[in-house]
Nucleic acid binder design. Structure first.
Length: 867
RNA sequence: GCCCGGAUGGUGGAAUUGGUAUACACAGCAGACUUAAAAUCUGCCGCCGCAUGGCUUACGGGUUCAAAUCCCGUUCCGGGCACCA
């Protein structure tokens, strides 16, 4: 055994042991409770970043902890391997996406192994492999036949110069990122998943997910956005519009219908198109609305603009004519693509009406009297609920009564009814890109859209493809798209769109259970492992990925493939890793960013940062604040350098110690030094213990008082650590381990009693640390002769006898201010404590002779005397 | 713009969930060891004040015997917004 800690040797020895014993290979075992611990799989972007290290360390700590607690633990790993970056790499470097992706997988897999994660690698999957995506295609055809997948027009970002559909990410300030051309909205046919069919279930089931963070459930509830309201029909007439019909809108504020002064439709609405046909000015406005991307954040922050179509619809209750406006804030994809506007009681309508001089009609009385006088200048809309005014027969009704009365009257006229509306929209899954799962459909002029039959699956993605960044590569490959109709055999055209990569990540967790099955998508093993007991991943996936996975699991359930409805029983959402950024501003105003590794930070005599210089030239650089680690700010810290210098255990320990998992983690190199120092001390302690003969026999039940204090302290820290493990608060678990080592180092005696307490304490320390720093724990456990394999050791529990205490200290407050303390027997009654507190010198002094008005005793904590 | 979070010493963070604010670390300062340096060890370390003491958990109010924690309002920072993954 080395006297100095040498992480590289320790880690390769431990990893070799796990490798040769297949320590993490698992199978179904009915005798033990199962624990399926899953971290979100990585996109193989090139190399691991700090966020990956954090994510997989959290998952690994949970997996190893539960294993020691007696669970049959599965922790698999795979690759979310389809996606845009591979195509971008192909465009800029000419490397084929498949080659680039598999090379990245190789490298990153090596990095994961070096970190010592307890992964069952026999279950590895890559979503770009035909053995994976053929089952996705197979399920697609089933869902298509069930009607859960359908085709309709969808709006995309169109780059008119590159003749390409752009992702929202590729639209910057309304322009294509490569061409710089102003992006247009374009409608194209796309396949959709009918997630809205599950809206109610996805919403209701959130109430049965106690293991999910409340914040994530709230976000999902709001995203699904169930609202109860009224569908209102505004009829239009042959005389005014040239044809008869109704304009449908949905509103949650039917009580304000008598205050509607206009209606607004989306630029893509048929009425807008009709009106624009004879009105060049309006046509130009509709055209202007087509400019810019489709991202909601952009649409919502845009300046609200509109134009009168000249068309008029009829108010369903008053019979008055209301103008129809085209407005850029009305979205064709939401609801009916039209809204009724009540400027007096809606902020956005109020601003719009003010801008264009549209009438404002007050119909709700403000509860705080602000808008009593309708003639007074309006400053703002009154959007609260209240009693109706200026509404004829509805005057005096409150929100519920008015909504019911108006809905009933509309229904009687056949011009509307109550209904439930969801904000959730169906999931558009078609992508006009190459590096994705081909959609298994064939377009036949006679038979329509025909699914590819099972025996022709998979529809393999061709690899000999040219990627230029212009247009869809597959749509240019006749060898790919030319085919025969499976139904009639006539020449037909294969679908050239690929699937949204969120589809792959919506079911991968089930495939891990049976990745070797070439005959079925999933089998009985999936029902053994599902649902996932613990899922770990970034908070940025709180809505889309997690909601799609919840939907997909239900769709698969309804196809008879799995029993579970919910995929993830417990969810841990991890915070991002951020770091300081440093820059210099060039003469052209452009910032050049320097990596923190190349920058020296200067501090004053108290350690406050006062400036920074570039190590290369000694000249100053500016501090750019704390930012998410990114290429653009050049502030990423490469975990590989950290592992090379300090070892995997130090990297794991630091990242777990630096912040609680759900919080943002601020990177600092000096903290790493501290983690490394702690492990060196652990090693030295273990070395000394091993030299002194290693593990000792069982501890005496009643050690001498001085030792009893030390042992109480150690078991107290253990109790805290176990509590914190349950809360996933690993930073304080590490703190507790540090406190235990501090206590152990104070135990100087060489006598048998002291050595017994030390030996017990160190065995507790190693087991507490083993999920976090498994390599050093594994080696020291053996060197100190605690056993052969710490993985098989029982999890340590505090001993009640060790924690027992005769006398405790209580804090003493006078009028809520801390004025001293007192010692009382642990079992003292409240009255006894009160008397002891009143008798203290501090109480006498600060009460200044006044009688106590009240004495509050908080058991085991404090006494507060109020005078 | 909308939805969801966050803010505690020079720094990361802790606070048994309403009960000793600043645990455990990092950085810093002082000392020991050393020819010297590294490593290691010991002590100090929120702010103001000579001090009894006072102040302090982004900011402003409130509830309470007691608030970092609960309520109302504000500011700033972060995540998501349906084609980044």
């Amino acid at each position: 055994m080395q006297d100095k800690y040498q992480p590289a040797a320790v880690e390769s020895s431990a990893q070799h042991y796990w490798e040769t014993t297949s320590a993490f290979r698992v199978s179904e075992d009915a005798a033990r409770p199962k624990y399926y611990c899953l971290s979100m799989f990585p996109y193989p972007s090139g190399k691991l970043h700090m966020g990956h290290v954090r994510n997989y360390t959290i998952g690994d700590v949970l997996a190893r902890y539960h294993r020691m607690r007696g669970f049959n633990v599965l922790q698999p790993m795979g690759w979310d391997a389809f996606g845009m970056p591979a195509e971008n790499a192909a465009i800029s470097n000419g490397v084929p996406p498949a080659k680039w992706t598999y090379a990245n997988i190789d490298y990153m897999k090596g990095q994961l192994k070096r970190l010592g994660f307890a992964i069952d690698w026999s279950r590895e999957i890559a979503t770009c492999s035909p053995s994976y995506y053929r089952w996705e295609q197979w399920l697609f055809t089933r869902l298509f036949e069930k009607g859960l997948i359908y085709k309709k027009l969808g709006t995309v970002n169109w780059d008119p110069v590159d003749q390409t559909v752009l992702a929202n990410e590729q639209v910057i300030d309304g322009r294509g990122w490569r061409s710089g051309a102003v992006v247009e909205k374009r409608e194209i046919p796309m396949y959709y998943m009918r997630i809205t069919a599950y809206a109610e279930e996805l919403l209701a089931a959130l109430d049965d997910l106690p293991g999910w963070p409340e914040q994530v459930k709230t976000m999902q509830r709001n995203w699904i956005g169930r609202s109860e309201g009224v569908e209102v029909h505004f009829p239009y007439e042959l005389a005014t519009i040239g044809k008869a019909g109704v304009l449908k809108v949905f509103t949650t504020r039917a009580d304000t219908l008598m205050g509607a002064t206009y209606v607004a439709v989306a630029a893509e609405h048929p009425l807008a198109a009709q009106a624009a046909a004879g009105n060049p000015e309006l046509a130009a406005f509709v055209e202007e609305c087509r400019q810019g991307g489709v991202a909601e954040a952009d649409l919502a922050t845009m300046e609200k603009k509109g134009m009168d179509t000249g068309l008029r619809v009829v108010h369903p209750l008053t019979g008055e004519y209301l103008p129809v406006w085209v407005a850029n804030y009305v979205l064709m994809g939401y609801g009916e693509g039209a809204v009724m506007a009540v400027p007096a009681h809606d902020e956005r309508d109020f601003a719009f009406a003010g801008k264009y001089g549209l009438p404002i009609q007050m119909v709700i009385r403000s509860t705080h009297g602000l808008y009593e006088d309708t003639a007074a200048p309006w400053r703002d809309a009154y959007a609260e609920h209240g009693k109706l005014v200026n509404s004829g027969k509805y005057d005096g009704l409150d929100f519920d009564a008015a909504t019911n009365a108006i809905a009933a009257d509309l229904a009687a006229k056949g011009l509307g009814q109550k209904r439930v509306q969801y904000r959730l929209r169906d999931w558009g899954i078609s992508r006009q890109r190459y590096w994705g799962c081909p959609i298994p459909m064939i377009r036949c002029d006679d038979c329509g859209d025909v699914p590819v039959p099972d025996e022709q699956l998979p529809v393999a993605l061709p690899e000999d493809v040219e990627i230029t960044g212009r247009g869809s590569p597959l749509a240019k490959m006749a060898s790919f798209y030319e085919c025969a109709c499976p139904k009639c055999g006539k020449p037909a055209r294969r679908e050239t769109d690929t699937l949204d990569t969120f589809v792959e990540s919506s079911w991968y967790f089930l495939r891990y259970a049976c990745n070797d099955n070439a005959a079925a998508m999933v089998d009985a093993r999936a029902n053994y492992w599902a649902p996932i007991d613990q899922y770990v991943g970034g908070i940025e996936h709180a809505i889309l990925h997690l909601l799609y996975s919840r939907f997909f699991t239900r769709a698969m359930r309804d196809c008879g493939l799995v029993e579970a409805s919910e995929p993830f029983t417990r969810l841990l959402t991890q915070g991002m890793v951020v770091a300081s950024a440093f820059y210099r501003e060039g003469e052209d105003g452009k910032r050049q960013w320097f990596n923190p590794a190349d920058v020296a930070v200067e501090t004053d005599e108290r350690g406050r940062p006062v400036g920074a210089t570039l190590k290369a030239d000694g000249q100053p650089v500016d501090l750019g604040g704390t930012e998410k680690m990114s290429k653009s700010k050049n502030n990423g810290v490469d975990p590989q350098a950290l592992i090379d210098q300090y070892g995997a255990d130090t990297a794991r320990l630091f990242i777990m110690f630096a912040a609680p998992p759900e919080q943002q983690l601020e990177w600092s190199d000096s903290g790493v030094e501290g983690a490394s120092r702690f492990l060196r001390r652990v090693w030295s302690y273990g070395y000394d213990l091993a030299q002194a003969g290693g593990a000792r026999a069982k501890i005496a039940d009643t050690p001498p008082p001085a030792l009893a204090d030390a042992r109480r302290e150690i078991h107290g820290h253990l109790k805290q650590a176990n509590h914190d493990f349950g809360k996933f608060q690993f930073n304080t678990v590490v703190s507790a381990a540090m406190k235990i080592l501090n206590a152990l180092e104070k135990l100087a005696g060489k006598d048998a009693a002291t050595q017994a307490v030390a030996s017990e304490g160190f065995s507790i320390l190693l087991r507490l640390l083993s999920p976090i720093t498994p390599h050093i724990a594994h080696v020291l456990w053996r060197e100190c002769a605690f056993g052969d394999d710490i993985l098989a050791a029982p999890w340590p529990e505090p001993v009640a006898a060790a924690l027992a205490q005769d006398e405790i200290e209580l804090m003493l407050q006078i009028n809520g201010k801390l004025r001293g303390s007192l010692r009382v027997p642990a079992a003292a009654a409240t009255a006894e404590i009160e008397n002891a507190a009143l008798a203290t010198e501090a109480a006498q002094k600060f009460m200044a002779g006044k009688p106590p008005r009240k004495v509050v005793v908080v058991p085991r904590r404090l006494v507060n005397i109020v005078v």
